[in-house]
């Protein structure tokens, strides 16, 4: 992870600012930075989205493939995650430098998204025990400026919304074998229900308070942070603590409450935005991930 150096005096300034609910860039403790979302940015994927949050930029592409379902869950499809930490983000990711962060991120994403409460995995099943759709979610970090989890989760939700899986028909031939036929019509496709897909809210404990969407400087002042995934109803689906410091139970409770509040407020504008973008159709001017 990209690190910045902060001197003692700066730390004090940041700490006092958070205590007074006025952060260095003028935000309150529960404010996000400016966020931009665009879907359908990569043409050779089934669904893609790009999210920029401050200077953090994330690109997510989803590809669907037909595979055998997992033996334990024969009537469900599944998701696979891969996070690529590009050396474009920071020079530290060069070579194998980003591998550790990549695995950590993908493991957390797997826990948050790959369950039937978040994504309707049953709808990914084609024939129980034999064929199912597997969604390969590839995350590419283009720029790191703190708060990767939130940006990635929003990008994944947008990309899942954008995903179009072709419809398949199963026909039985004379010998009793099953044959899968893909629909010829490119517009005959299945959409995923993303209503219950959670968004991740990262709360950093700085001093006696906690902040949402911490910048790298604020991250350097925080001892520990809490990753909370929240659905549109405000249900917490996953909770994880990262960082070396400790958190007392009372502040964990406070942070969860704040996370719920912030996370719940995040979903409605996001869904409205995605639907609005969808309704523009082909007339929309695309910015793309280089723009």
């Amino acid at each position: 992870m990209a690190t910045v150096q902060v001197s003692e005096a700066e730390k004090v300034y940041i700490l006092h600012g958070i205590r007074d609910d006025l952060r260095v860039d003028g935000r309150g403790c529960e404010d996000y930075r400016h966020m931009e979302t665009e879907t359908d940015v990569v043409s050779n994927t089934d669904g893609s989205a790009k999210v920029t949050l401050g200077h953090t930029a994330v690109l997510v592409g989803i590809k669907a493939e037909i595979r055998k379902p997992r033996p334990m869950l024969p009537d469900e499809g599944y998701l696979e995650f891969f996070v690529d930490c590009s050396a474009n983000a920071t020079p530290e990711f060069e070579g194998r430098g980003g591998e550790e962060l990549g695995t950590e991120l993908s493991n957390t994403l797997y826990k948050v998204f790959n369950n039937k409460h978040s994504v309707d995995l049953k709808s990914l099943c084609i024939s129980a025990g034999e064929h199912c759709w597997v969604l390969y979610v590839d995350v590419l970090l283009l720029q790191c400026d703190g708060n990767l989890y939130d940006a990635i989760s929003i990008a994944i939700k947008a990309a899942l919304f954008n995903t179009k899986i072709p419809r398949v028909h199963i026909s039985t031939d004379d010998e009793g074998g099953k044959e899968i036929e893909l629909s010829d019509d490119p517009f005959d496709c299945m959409r995923l229900n993303v209503e219950n897909v959670p968004c991740i809210v990262t709360l950093c404990k700085v001093g006696h308070r906690h902040v949402v969407d911490a910048t790298l400087q604020e991250k350097a002042c925080s001892v520990a942070s809490l990753i909370i995934s929240v659905t549109h109803k405000g249900t917490v689906t996953c909770l994880r603590k990262v960082g070396g410091g400790s958190l007392d139970p009372e502040s964990i409770f406070e942070m969860t409450e704040a996370g719920k509040r912030v996370g719940k407020a995040l979903h409605t504008p996001l869904m409205n935005l995605l639907k609005q973008e969808e309704s523009l159709g082909k007339t929309r001017q695309k910015v793309g991930f280089l723009g």
Partner: peptide, 19 residues
């Protein structure tokens, strides 16, 4: 001193200038 905190108004001005 070095470690005393600032007024909210001063802080706001500094943040505004920074942005």
């Amino acid at each position: 001193g070095l470690y005393t905190s600032l007024d909210l108004s001063d802080r706001e001005v500094i943040s505004r200038l920074r942005n």
